[in-house]
Design a protein around this nucleic acid. Structure first.
Lengths: 351, 351
DNA sequence: TATCCACACGCAAACGTTTTAGTAAAAATA
DNA sequence: TATTTTTACTAAAACGTTTGCGTGTGGATA
């Protein structure tokens, strides 16, 4: 339990100045060969490492990026984090994770805690409560203070910053089109309330697909789940709502669900009602996670490539950080491509 | 894009000294009432926040704890992180996450990057490669440097530090006993190679249960999966190995799997072979995650209460940090209790 | 009027670095 | 030998805080 060596103690020990030690360690030509040797040997012996905090203070940058997400026990978000981590570490950056738990207040607190010099920039996916309140002052203030932000997945249009998203509308349209092509006549969507941007957009894509195929919109076929039900606690309520939905729509032969959980639960309800998948009912989910892959039957889904999204987020942020002098005020929105992963809840009509 | 206000700029603007500003903001009685007012008003106007990095440097503590885990796309680990986050934030600490990706080198790098003043202490679950190499010098060196470490789940006995674990042996024994009580005669275990501590211990629990019931050990009933197969890429190989395992053990009527994935995959193989669960084969998995809950049929599992484990880790670490003067060299090992979650892959003989 | 004491504030050091500018001494040049 | 150049190093400032101590001003007291 010895104290960590600093330049100062090395200097004192070797009877040279602090600056000599510093320079010797960086192989400066200002320092003589034998002095360098002495210093390096001593530093290695005592396992000297420069103090990161001091460096951060001096350089006014921490080489750390803050990621704030609604929840971490969630396959998509962790996949994104993996991508962020990978790219960031590779560039010598650390990643600090803050959880908002979908709460506005916790999001504000997290932003506050980290924005005071702890991190160089943020990557954030906005909490549902924040989206519902439409209060983004904490985000715009952070940007105003010169801390760049990259938003992903749940983004908000009013805020000017770099963004990484999936083309929710086009992707959903593609998925629903697939159901139509596979012969579905009565296609329902299980979505979220409209203030969740991805729910809103995916619903729009669903409607566009119907419209494009001259299928009339039927409000009964659109189920908008209340956000609170996402938490694992009230699974039964979710199941109940979907059950009711199924009862209301007897000849339902296709379901597009905006997330894994809704898709899986729909399958569960279908199974309970003796509905054969995919023979009587075809299902496509958004987001390709473990649940979909290991479901029975394995679920056809849309893969959003979370890892790549994470990499893109980190890249965008770090690029902006590294050229912060130029004050580039033009922001990018990266749209990552999606893929339809055909598994066994859809009929394989066309590949 | 204004620069962040510091004490210095406030001081200059108000034509007082830096120390006056600092003291005024903390309501020191040394400062006159009107000056305090002026300073506070100005600070609020420009949204002044003390720079955390400077404080960290001064106080020699960062109020940040580093968590290093093998992978983040994993229900158990994210649950633990949730617990850590919750407790830590509540105590005013931040959480920084490092991923080892099960690699020894990445673990060392992560430890190195963070140990130089960036964090006050670590919470770590050791990478498989590290366990295989049995090289823990990076960990002991970190502890020697005065940075406390708490290990959880995958711990190593040789290292003296606080630990949070599950009683793997007893818990596994209990699970296997349950299978026996439910009438299973031929019980197999799907485990990992022995260098993964949890796999080794859970296998031991399995054997103890057999022994306790005077059932002879049968090597054929013990399948030790090679670690590399955990990654989602080679699922087919995993499936293949389990398939072979089933063929070798025809009258198998009980399976105890040391993790979710193995359990789920075993069920998949069983279904493919037309084996009815739980009528012909009963299955219990270790770790209660989303897969188990949403499996069909829902999987009976052992819940390790990851959230509580996280809280315990954070509590242990923070307690040690806050009384670092006393140099308490007695370490605790917290054993969190487990529960058998009865679902539908076991016969409900006794509740 | 001389002395004392609050009062209100400023100075400076410290945390551990890096870096610019400066300075002795030694070496090279004239 | 006198001057310049090079070598090898040190001093000090800076990053943004906090805090113990010093100090000038004023009013109250003697």
């Amino acid at each position: 339990m010895k104290q960590k060596p600093t330049l100062k103690v090395i200097a004192k020990e070797l009877d040279v100045s602090v600056s000599t030690v510093s320079k010797a360690l960086k192989d400066s030509k200002e320092i003589g060969a034998k002095t360098k040797e002495r210093v390096k040997a001593f530093a290695k012996l005592y396992n000297y490492r420069p103090n990161n905090i001091a460096l951060s203070l001096k350089n006014r940058k921490t080489k750390t990026i803050g990621v704030i997400i609604p929840e971490i026990v969630h396959h998509f978000f962790t996949t994104v984090i993996s991508g962020i981590e990978q790219y960031a570490n590779q560039q010598g950056y650390n990643v600090i994770v803050g959880l908002s738990n979908e709460s506005f207040d916790k999001e504000v607190i997290n932003l506050d805690m980290l924005a005071n010099g702890s991190i160089d920039g943020f990557i954030i996916s906005v909490a549902k409560e924040t989206l519902a309140k439409e209060d983004y002052h904490h985000i715009s203030e952070t940007i105003d203070q010169g801390v760049p932000i990259v938003m992903f997945d749940r983004v908000v249009d009013e805020i000017l910053c770099d963004k990484v998203i999936v083309d929710d509308v086009a992707t959903s349209k593609k998925a629903v089109q697939q159901l139509i092509d596979n012969g579905c006549k009565k296609i329902g969507i299980i979505s979220t309330k409209d203030y969740v941007s991805v729910g809103r957009l995916r619903t729009r894509g669903y409607l566009e697909a119907l419209n494009h195929n001259h299928i009339a919109k039927d409000e009964n076929l659109i189920l908008k789940i209340d956000d609170k039900l996402n938490s694992n606690d009230n699974l039964e309520q979710l199941e109940q709502q979907i059950e009711t939905f199924f009862e209301k729509n007897k000849q339902l032969d296709g379901v597009f669900a905006v997330n894994e959980l809704y898709a899986i639960t729909a399958m569960k309800v279908a199974r309970k009602n003796g509905i054969q998948i995919p023979e009587q009912l075809q299902v496509i989910g958004f987001t390709d996670g473990v649940l979909s892959k290991h479901a029975h039957p394995p679920l056809t889904t849309i893969s959003q490539h979370g890892f790549e999204m994470g990499e893109d987020c980190a890249r965008l942020l770090i690029e902006r950080l590294e050229k912060q002098d130029e004050e580039d005020e033009t922001y990018q929105t990266v749209v990552v491509k999606t893929d339809l992963v055909h598994r066994e809840t859809t009929k394989t009509k066309k590949q």
